[in-house]
Computed example of a mutant assay.
Amino acid sequence: MAIKQAIVAQALPLIKAGMVVGFGGGTTVGELVRQAANHVNDITVVTPSPTTRQLATVLGYTVISPAYCDRIDIAFDGCDQLDHHGNALKSGGGIHTAEKIIASLADEYWLLTVKDRLVDQFDPQTPLVLEVLPTAFALVMQTVSDLGGQATVRTAANRDGFTLSDQGNLLIDCHFPTYEHLSALNQELVATAGVVETSYFDRLVTNAILGDADHQQVTTLF
């Protein structure tokens, strides 16, 4: 059994009939969405991911917008990095604001990832991503520089121009020499006018299912 399927097999029993379930993006979560359709289809799905929303709709789930949902029983997502305290960086997809809304609504927020992404300290090669109002562009770029970082506006690979969030905001990738004080750095950036959200998930994770491909083992973080 591939490690992705093993992770999904451990996550499946957490989903019960009648639940409101949040599903994020990524291939592992997508596999969980598919398998859950065979396990228990009587759930309501909330998702920040257009790809996951389309898949869930095709599979026959009831899908509702987070805008009209005030509570989620359990949510599943992936991550780029995860520390031993349950903090996470989710920088790749550019939908971290919507993902944080799902995480904040959820009674339980589980990450599904490989054990290689569990770190003692976050690797600064993974950017801290900011969703930023276009009018705050210059302010945010200067603030990142003042905090010792380098900021780059994310551009689209298949069109001329910037990559925009679903809300029409800029995505700015920030690299810092170290993430030793990431929580404090994150607070500084969140407090900057025009920053909608960052890709650092501070104390939002309930638990994580970690797959070890080398040993074909699956464990939980806590």
Score class of each variant (00 low, 15 high):
H175C: 00
G30M: 09
D146C: 01
D107R: 15
Q81L: 00
V63Q: 05
F222I: 08
F137H: 13
G168A: 04
A138Y: 05
M1E: 08
D70G: 02
T143H: 10
V21L: 10
A193M: 13
N207G: 01
T51F: 05
Q54D: 13
G22T: 05
Q121M: 08
T178D: 15
Q150E: 14
L221T: 05
K90D: 10
V205C: 10
P48C: 04
D173C: 01
L189R: 02
V190E: 15
A98N: 08
L14P: 00
F176R: 04
A136M: 03
F222N: 12
N169G: 03
V20D: 02
S104N: 11
L118T: 01
I7R: 11
L147C: 03
A156N: 15
Y68C: 01
E99R: 00
Q125Y: 03
N207S: 08
A103V: 02
I64Q: 13
A208P: 00
A157Q: 15
V63A: 02
D160L: 12
Q167G: 00
A11W: 04
N41A: 14
L210F: 11
C79N: 11
A157M: 14
T57E: 07
R117L: 08
S183I: 08
L55M: 13
D123L: 00
T97Q: 12
N38E: 12
P66N: 11
L182I: 15
A36H: 07
L118D: 03
A193V: 10
G30K: 13
V195H: 03
S183Y: 03
A88R: 08
A208K: 08
L130V: 02
T152D: 08
L82H: 05
L221V: 05
T135L: 13
L14Y: 12
K90T: 03
R71W: 03
V46H: 06
T52V: 11
G149Y: 02
G26V: 07
V196I: 15
D212A: 07
V195D: 04
S183L: 04
K100H: 08
K100A: 07
F122Q: 02
P50K: 09
E99H: 00
V40T: 14
C69Y: 08
I3N: 04
Q216K: 12
T113N: 07
L112D: 03
T57I: 00
Y109N: 15
S199F: 08
A151R: 05
D173N: 09
D83C: 09
I64N: 09
L130G: 03
D146S: 09
A103G: 05
